[in-house]
Design a protein around this nucleic acid. Structure first.
Length: 504
RNA sequence: GCCAAGGUGGCAGAGUCUGGUCAGACGCAGCGGCCUGCAGAGCCGCCCAACGCCGGUUCAAAUCCGGCCCUUGGCUCCA
């Protein structure tokens, strides 16, 4: 069984194959603001792909760029006292971006290249394109001639004839064809561009950002060329997988293909994977629209597991809706996984877990869950289906634990189990660890009464008091204690062997 | 205008490649039952219900073909 992915270039599902090593390039973020949940959706899916390729035995070389040269960055110079230059702003948001990535439990890429450290490679690439006749200089700027590259439009199915002009109005007069795009822009950020993105008043002096020397004079690299230069520098001429948001198909990725293939003569990327957009109230989540939820805020409010479970609720290539309801659904799904995991671990550690007890139904459920999970992942990374396999396993685990608890509670009914199947439960927990943990990146932690920390001991103390009240029939007082504990984030569950608790 | 993705139950979201085993995935919300002092969790059941519209191909269409309508995205910075 091999992995099938939906390839934008081939425009169909294709078998993914590679020999041992896989190079994965992800179009990263322009660090001009805090990252939001739309950006994180791409990161999450790239991360799960990375994890699944690992799981399949590939050696993944994952590179994700940081765009730290951009007019939106220069527009924020001076917004804070310490933001004196473009690099200061970029550094600040690069830091928040990395914090957000860590908070999301993303596997680290091999390298996060930045534009500012790859200007020599970018200049070389532009020179090569001029030498080969694919690009031309005009007024100190350099443009790619889209009519000179035969495959232009093959990714997005655009016809050069039908294209409208790319780029800012002031640069159009410098171009041979309106659809040509800039590889190198003369001088700093223009005043009109800077003003357009500015969120505050710069006064008389509009910051124009950093510039670099080049054969065509001082200037700045174009947006598209950086990805071509950085991906090639770190991963070679041909990438196995190039991944990005669907909104980048045209013109960004189309232009990357043109630049790279024109320069090297090689296929730029064997597979193109595009992640669908995150929609809030039926509209794309976007910084410029303002309908966004930043990653730090979301992590703060929901926690990493709910955020990741939410993303796992839809296939990467589909659009996904973010609403109160879909978030609530993710919370419930995560809680169900997590509660069942805790329950399985508790049962496993209890003296009622026996080496000789067996429950064929449980053991079969574990095997089925693993098979179903793998099949779903290989089927174009169908994460909701994969998660469904794990939720089916929670059913089996809960049934098993219920059966033993019921049996123990009423002196063992005719068909009730009397002991936990140690091996079956261990296999179930391992499956959760490997698949939910290792592949989906969810983090189970023991938040049950197995903990011996101070908070846990204090909760135990309160539970003892509550139990005494219950035995005395003072249910009102017992409920008050339960409510008080819930208010501070401790969930109480009464069971046959007394109350258990979980930290929310 | 051009290009792309999509339109499936109250919500969300698989299934479309490879037509039948699919109409009722997993889940959320709602309802009932078991359990419980109550609640929660869990389990069992219900929710007698959806494939945008119109044609076509076929023994058979959510799935293939054609047309139309609508939504979203891109063509300007975008994940």
């Amino acid at each position: 069984m091999s992995l099938v992915v939906t390839d934008t270039l081939a425009d169909e599902r294709v078998d993914f194959t590679a020999d041992g090593d896989v190079t994965l390039y992800v179009c990263g973020l322009t660090v001009s603001d805090d990252p939001h949940l739309g950006h994180a959706r791409l990161w999450f899916h790239a991360d799960v792909l990375h994890r699944w390729l690992d799981h399949l035995g590939y050696d993944v070389r994952h590179v994700e760029n940081v765009t730290d040269v951009n007019e939106k960055i220069t527009a924020r110079i001076g917004e804070r006292d310490e933001w004196a230059a473009e690099r200061d702003v970029a550094e600040a948001f690069t830091a928040t971006t990395f914090d957000a990535m860590r908070g999301l439990n993303l596997k680290r890429a091999e390298v996060y290249p930045r534009v500012t450290e790859h200007v020599p490679e970018i200049r070389d690439l532009v020179e090569t394109l001029i030498e080969k006749g694919y690009a031309y200089e005009s007024n100190g700027s350099v443009y790619f001639d889209v009519t000179g590259f035969d495959g232009y439009g093959k990714l997005s199915n655009q016809d050069v004839e039908d294209l409208e002009a790319q780029g800012e109005p002031d640069e159009r007069s410098e171009k041979r064809n309106p659809a040509d795009f800039a590889l190198w822009k003369a001088d700093g950020v223009s005043e009109t561009a800077a003003r357009e993105h500015a969120k505050h008043d710069h006064g008389a002096e509009t910051p124009s950002g950093e510039t670099w020397d080049s054969p065509w004079g001082e200037g700045r690299p174009g947006w598209h060329v950086e990805c071509s230069a950085m991906s090639t520098t770190h991963l070679g001429d041909t990438l196995d997988i190039h991944m990005g948001g669907r909104d980048l198909v045209f013109p960004h990725h189309e232009n990357e293909i043109a630049q790279s293939e024109a320069a090297t003569g090689e296929t730029f990327a064997r597979h193109w994977l595009h992640v669908g957009l995150l929609a809030m109230d039926g509209e794309k989540m976007s910084s410029s629209i303002g309908n966004f939820w930043t990653v730090p805020d979301a992590l703060d409010e929901l926690g990493v597991n709910v955020v990741r479970t939410f993303y796992a609720g839809a296939a990467y290539r589909s659009e996904q809706a973010l609403t109160e309801e879909t978030i609530a659904e993710a919370e419930e799904r995560w809680e169900r996984l997590s509660r069942t995991y805790d329950r399985a671990v508790d049962a496993l550690d209890s003296t009622e877990a026996r080496a000789k007890a067996t429950d064929d139904e449980l053991r079969e459920a574990v095997a089925t869950a693993r098979d179903d999970f793998a099949a779903a992942m290989n089927d174009d990374l169908n994460l909701r289906e994969a998660t469904a396999a794990l939720l089916d396993l929670t059913d089996a685990v809960n049934r098993h634990v219920d059966a033993v608890e019921d049996g123990a509670g009423d002196g063992a009914g005719a068909d009730a189990e009397t002991a936990y199947d140690y091996r079956g439960l261990r296999e179930a927990v391992e499956a959760f660890d490997d698949l939910a943990g290792g592949v989906l990146g969810l983090q189970f932690e023991s938040t049950t009464d197995g903990d011996v920390d101070l908070a846990g001991e204090l909760v135990e103390l309160v539970l003892d008091v509550r139990e005494a009240e219950r035995e005395a029939g003072n249910y009102e007082r017992a409920d008050e204690l339960r409510d008080a504990l819930r208010d501070v984030g401790v969930e109480i569950e009464d069971g046959p062997d007394g109350a258990t608790y979980r930290f929310e």
